[in-house]
Design a protein around this nucleic acid. Structure first.
Lengths: 213, 213
DNA sequence: GGAGATATCCCCCGACCGGGGGAGGGGCGG
DNA sequence: CCGCCCCTCCCCCGGTCGGGGGATATCTCC
């Protein structure tokens, strides 16, 4: 690996955690810890001046916390990737952190190997999660339910447009068919979904995993 | 790294792709390609007999496809991790693959570095996605949007009922007010959300994080 | 070759919806 | 105290929607 080492900034309010991480990461020839921050504000500041490739960010920090700091760091020009590191599995932080734009989410209990791999992974631009987090994300998604009514391709297409808030006339134009045809399809979708009107159709269709919103 | 190398099984119907991957992965001292499969059935078979640590699985394969093969592979005793590799970003495969239990999802256009990192990452037990996939997963969730129009409490309440597919009359009954009142609230919600009708209001309201579905 | 599903078009009609007005009362902050 | 916002109710009207009947053509599967 003749590449320049990956430059890492550590942000954690526990000096001990920082020391531990530094030890683990600096042991790798291709990784280089270039700075440490004890709180979010300092992390943002150092991210700007040191221009690291990756920031290892703790969630809980005094003052500006890790989530806020993540947002701020990602607003910098040519922002680093942010790898959020936390102690607990079940805080709702995962979703918040990822929404804020973090590239990864790792548990502190992860081994040195995982930590090192994680930094390398986000450094090359991929996103990374601990397996449970991914399962949680997938689980709460609208599921392609097995009990979903069988719509014909055309019906799904029409439903999709209904879900865009289009009127029958607009859908007819979009699909290059007569309004009557659209009415027929809509009627059949309503029947299959047991919906009384298009609004219910959209909601039920969404819940059944038949349309994206 | 005194550890035993990570044993990798390649599953792709294109011999060329397999050769390319083998070249990339075998170049790393800590990775070892132990087998190749041209279709899903063969992949499952080899996964059982060769007991690899990681399977790089193409989605599109003749016969048993990558998704089905993923399910089957993960049903083996002490299953390997499955890293799904595909060409296109926007097949809906991502969700299906992850639901099936895949540990990661990677694009073929990823560079050699990313490929290698990805294998190592799933080998240590983490999950990995290409960034867009993660964004898609996160995107469709109720967002704590900052730019959401400010609805009054009553308006939010009405919108919630509209999102249940209720008519104005039903909402009026539910809230114990006159239909006219409901109409007023609905009109103001439509205005604030720039929606033409209640269906659009539901979709836009959902996207703005103002209603649950 | 017929049965079934799918997609296309047609008519009537009652109901609901959304836009346009207006109006009164209560609460809160300048 | 006066204005502003919120909630409540009222009237008119045109457009859209959804249900009820149909009809025709293509395609597949048996």
């Amino acid at each position: 690996m003749p590449d320049a080492p990956v430059r890492v900034l550590l942000a954690d309010d526990e000096p001990l955690v920082r020391s531990g991480l530094r030890l683990i990461l600096d042991a790798e020839p291709d990784l280089e810890v270039v700075g440490e921050a004890g709180d979010g504000a300092r992390a943002v500041e150092l991210a700007r001046s040191l221009r690291p490739d990756v920031v290892c960010m703790d969630v809980r920090m005094p003052g500006v916390d890790g989530l806020r700091a993540t947002e701020l760091v990602l607003r910098l020009p040519e922002p680093p990737r942010v790898l959020v590191v936390t102690t607990f599995e079940h805080d709702g932080y995962v979703l918040d952190a990822l929404t804020a734009g973090a590239s990864g989410f790792l548990l502190k209990r992860a081994g040195a190997d995982e930590m090192v791999q994680a930094v390398r992974t986000v450094a090359v631009g991929q996103s990374l999660l601990y397996p449970q987090a991914l399962r949680d994300l997938v689980r709460t998604r609208p599921r392609a339910a097995s009990g979903a009514p069988a719509l014909t391709p055309r019906e799904r297409e029409v439903l999709a447009l209904v879900a865009q808030g289009m009127t029958n006339a607009e859908i007819a134009t979009a699909l290059v068919v007569g309004v009557e045809t659209v009415r027929t399809h809509v009627a059949s979708v309503l029947g299959k979904l047991r919906a009384r009107d298009r609004t219910q159709a959209v909601v039920l269709g969404y819940r059944a995993g038949l349309v994206e919103l």
